[in-house]
Every structure is written in structure tokens, then in C-alpha cells.
Nucleic acid binder design. Structure first.
Lengths: 167, 167
DNA sequence: TACCTGTGGTTGATGCTTCAACAAGAACGC
DNA sequence: GCGTTCTTGTTGAAGCATCAACCACAGGTA
């Protein structure tokens, strides 16, 4: 590590925590993705889209709102929904009131795929995270993730990559 | 969410924690990546390679060992180092003892790039994570990330995607 | 030596994400 | 009404990760 006078470097402990944080979060994400692909042929990123749609009234949502709820860029969502549409899991149609808008709707096949994938996925999340943590650790994690999310949002202005802002 | 008798679904609280966890970790990663690219033109994934090399004796490491330390697949590392080599930040040469092996070495330009990128990156990590957490939360996070990493490793067999195992 | 197996590393194809540019419609001002 | 500007969503190109296949070499066995 380079040394510069004005920089407030991480302490040994912070560095250890940070690297373990990276290993743990990346490892969990990779593990869940691999399992979901193997079990149900769905990448995690697409799974989340199906979940959000399944919780929406009429299984339907505007693209923009769906992107918000998935913390995804419009671009990414557009590509992803095109893929999901080719699988037959989602269908798209125009909105009534707004000529620009597009509605994404979870199809029966999409709901079936989600119902099949969900138990294994949840079991994995539980086994890796919630079953491994003590009640005290869960309490702490609750506070930590909220703090972290807010701190990141404050620093990044809530920006989502791929969401083209002011030109 | 679908209901199936044998599945142990997440409680409301667990679900809330899990979704916030996803938002926080993904948000932090995206934020750090964006900052690092904007400030120094380095993707986070490549930054980590430079850091590991900079901490190695002689700024040199075998590809396989480097992949381990970066928790990266050989394939990914090979592509990444090829890119870093084209930037002039890393050079590759053959090993003396093993005709198969390859050594990656951090160049002066690579070290300079790292020295320029590190302060901003560390400041961001500090601002988003360590400065936002209370001492008690840091203690808790220390335990949580170690627990999580171990639980994931136990469940995934320590597998790294892209590391072709037994045929 | 010859063979066979395992390991280290690279390569090319494919897939998902991001960025930049664009098209089409809505909202506002005049 | 008409032009300007903002919003919504899509598209194509480029970047990085993953997967499968592959080559080259090492180590063991006969």
C-alpha cells in the first residue's frame, strides 16, 4: 500500500473487515447465481424482476417503475425484459393513458418458473445467511445494512448506473 | 411470493433485511466502481489485481496464486491481465522452474496508477462504510462477515465460477 | 522411451451490463 | 396552434465475466 500524508488509510482491522466483506458478499452473490442457474435456469438478476412483478397488482408494472424497484437502469431492464419475453415469462404491451409507456406483465409460465425456483433460492439464502447468524447478529445486520444503504445513497446521489441524467 | 408447505420462507423482517442487504451491497459496489473509473480509469475488478500484486514480494506472482488471492477464475484473470498488460500496468514472463507457469509483474506505471487511484478509493470506502458505522456496528460487522464468508464457503465448497473442476 | 494423467494457463464464443444515441410522445410556454 | 424541452423506452456497440475447449508441460508408470 502506498503512503501519502493526507490520506486517511484503513487500519489493519478495517482492512481485514473490508476484505472479508468483499469475499463474503461476492461469494454469496456468485453462489446464489450459480445455484439459481443450475436449479431453474434463471440468472439472479432476472429472478429479481420476476419477484417484483409477482408482487405487483395484476402482475403488471410500467417499465420505469419496475426499473426503480429493481434498482436497475432502464436500459438493462429493457434488455432483460426482452430476454424474459423470449422465454415466454413476461409479456409487454402499450399503456392506455401514456403513449410512450410500456407495461410488463408476468405470464402464467413466468409465475410457474418463479414458483419452481423460489424454494431452492430461499433455502440457500437462509442457509448461508440467516441460519448462520445469531439473533444478536441479525439485529446488528439489520441496522448495518440500513446505515450502509443510506450512506451510499447520500454519497452517490442515489444514482443508478445506466440511468442517463442531465445532458 | 408463492406458498409451499415444505418451504421455510423468510419472515417479514428477514425479507426486509435481505432486500436492504442487496440494495446496500450492490449500491456500494456500483458506487465504488463508478468512482474508480471516473477518477482513475480503472474498473474495481482490475484495481484489486493491482493491489494484490503490489503487496507481493518483488511485485510478482504466479497467475494461479494471483487468481486465488483475487478469488478469481484463471480464465477471468487471464483476460484481465491481458488487458492490464495492454495498459502497460502489468508485464508477463515465463517461470524459470515450471515450463507451464506464467509470472505477472506490476510495472512502474502500474504502481503509479495504483498510487494515484488508491486515496480516492479508500476515502470512498471509509465514507460509505467505516465512518457511517458506530464502533459497536463495526464489531458486529467483523463477526458477521467472517460468519457469512465461512457459511458460503461451506455451502459452495469454496467454488469459484469459471474454475473448471473435475471433468 | 512411450504413455497416460493431472495441472497451469490461454483462447474464443456467448451472455449480461453499461454507455451513448435515438425515437416518440407528453408537458410547458408563447 | 406551435416550438421547445423533458420524459419514457428502445437499440446497437463495447466492456467484462463465464463457460467450454484447448495446448503445453510436469509427474508418474511401465
Amino acid at each position: 500500500m502506498p503512503e501519502q500524508p493526507e490520506t486517511h488509510w484503513l487500519t489493519d482491522r478495517e482492512q481485514r473487515v473490508w476484505r472479508t466483506y468483499l469475499a463474503a458478499t461476492a461469494g454469496l452473490q456468485a453462489h446464489l447465481d450459480r445455484r439459481l442457474r443450475a436449479d431453474a435456469g434463471i440468472p439472479v438478476a432476472y429472478y429479481e424482476i420476476l419477484v417484483v412483478l409477482s408482487e405487483s397488482p395484476g402482475l403488471t408494472l410500467r417499465m420505469g417503475r419496475l426499473a426503480e424497484l429493481c434498482r436497475s437502469s432502464r436500459s438493462r431492464l429493457s434488455h432483460a425484459v426482452a430476454m424474459l419475453e423470449s422465454y415466454g415469462w413476461v409479456s409487454r404491451c402499450a399503456t392506455e393513458d401514456d403513449g410512450r409507456g410500456s407495461l410488463a406483465r408476468l405470464t402464467d409460465a413466468g409465475l410457474a418458473a418463479l414458483r419452481e425456483a423460489a424454494p431452492g433460492h430461499v433455502a440457500e439464502v437462509r442457509a448461508c445467511l440467516f441460519d448462520a447468524l445469531s439473533p444478536q447478529q441479525l439485529d446488528a445486520l439489520d441496522g448495518i445494512v440500513h446505515t450502509l444503504r443510506d450512506a451510499v445513497a447520500a454519497r452517490s446521489g442515489g444514482a443508478v448506473p445506466g440511468c442517463q441524467g442531465a445532458p
